[in-house]
């Protein structure tokens, strides 16, 4: 293994690899969680700016430490478990959400070769694990043994399963074009090609963005926790650390969706132009910048767009996005067959 060569020389091939990847995972998770603290703040600041407010500005300079203050507030509160709740499932649900949100990052290449597990089926792994995310919500909703959480959980299950279908087809259009399911390969394929977001895949870019909003239960599709009708949906009975785990899991999923948009459509770690001032900047910075750009868009959508009605949400998923993405799968396959010299990009 070329990766972790320092540890491999020090401890032998199998233990060196083990220690190396364990450290890699630790660094990645810590970096993610710290970045998340500031992204949360950015989310609130953007939201405040749209509404001509100041947002959090008390803790630390410009409110920079607000998320850390919130963290301690959540952790030091008492965990309340409702009397009628199914205790085991009630506690497992937020843990599951958090763990699933973390392990998806194993296959995300933040720069060339900077990936914990360079799986051949990376994109399928991401799809599989993100399709499990629904369990945290539905289990939490059921175990609370209360009406609003249960309704929220059911809604969310239907919503996430619906939008997964179109996300799956969007992924297929990209991987048909690339000819590989490896996320690093997908980024490398865009090196000598226009970024897929600016080719005939542009409509799929839009579909993926909107489906990502629905998949992560973000406004305008935050029906599982619609506060005006369901109080807070599946989260009603959760407090303190358990709630915090739900929230971190949700935001990690949002950042993951931003990262997926970056990798699939905006060239991952690649600079926009492969010329002098741009390619001096390391790839991880470009990756982070693009993810932040998408996160900004997510925050703007949350601030600007009103909530969808439930039947409209289902109509959009099944009657608009599903046929559109199906047609685009056929078009992409047609283009790949029509230009056999160029496509698929990875032979």
């Amino acid at each position: 293994m070329e990766k972790y060569s320092f540890f491999v020389e020090l401890l032998g091939p199998s233990w060196g690899f083990f220690v190396g990847s364990a450290l890699h995972i630790l660094v990645l998770i810590v970096a993610l969680l710290v970045a998340l603290a500031f992204l949360l703040l950015a989310d609130r600041k953007v939201w405040a700016a749209v509404q001509i407010r100041r947002g959090p500005n008390v803790v630390g300079p410009f409110g920079l430490l607000q998320s850390f203050a919130d963290f301690f507030k959540f952790v030091f509160k008492e965990i309340v478990i409702p009397a009628g709740a199914n205790k085991g499932v009630f506690i497992i649900a937020p843990l599951l959400t958090f763990i699933l949100a973390c392990i998806t990052w194993a296959v995300v290449p933040v720069a060339d070769g900077w990936v914990v597990a360079d799986l051949n089926v990376g994109i399928l792994y991401l799809f599989a694990i993100s399709s499990l995310g629904v369990y945290g919500i539905i289990m939490g909703g059921w175990a609370s043994n209360s009406k609003y959480p249960f309704l929220g959980g059911l809604r969310s299950a239907a919503q996430m399963v619906s939008y997964e279908v179109s996300i799956g087809f969007v992924l297929i259009t990209v991987l048909v074009t690339v000819g590989s399911l490896n996320l690093s390969d997908i980024v490398r394929a865009q090196q000598d090609h226009v970024w897929f977001g600016f080719t005939w895949l542009l409509p799929m870019f839009v579909v993926f963005f909107i489906s990502a909003l629905a998949e992560t239960n973000r406004p305008p599709f935050d029906l599982p926790e619609a506060e005006s009708e369901l109080v807070a949906g599946y989260q009603v009975e959760y407090s303190s650390t358990l709630y915090l785990l739900f929230m971190i899991g949700e935001y990690l999923n949002i950042v993951l969706m931003c990262a997926m948009l970056t990798i699939l459509f905006l060239g991952g770690w690649l600079p926009p132009f492969d010329i002098a001032p741009f390619n001096w900047i390391p790839g991880v910075i470009w990756f982070a910048l693009k993810v932040c750009f998408f996160f900004f868009l997510f925050a703007m959508v949350k601030a600007i767009v009103p909530r969808y009605r439930y039947d409209q949400l289902m109509r959009l998923g099944w009657k608009v996005f599903l046929p559109l993405s199906l047609v685009w799968v056929a078009i992409s396959a047609g283009i790949v067959v029509a230009f056999p010299d160029t496509y698929p990009l990875v032979k």
Binding site: V121, A128, I129, I138, L154, V161
Partner: peptide, 26 residues
């Protein structure tokens, strides 16, 4: 057989079992 593994998770765990759960809860 990593492809089969992922398909198992996507199809059975991600979709079929959700519907199971959905029905059993109701």
């Amino acid at each position: 057989a990593e492809f089969l593994a992922m398909i198992l998770v996507v199809v059975y765990v991600g979709a079929v079992a959700v519907l199971f759960l959905f029905v059993v809860m109701m």
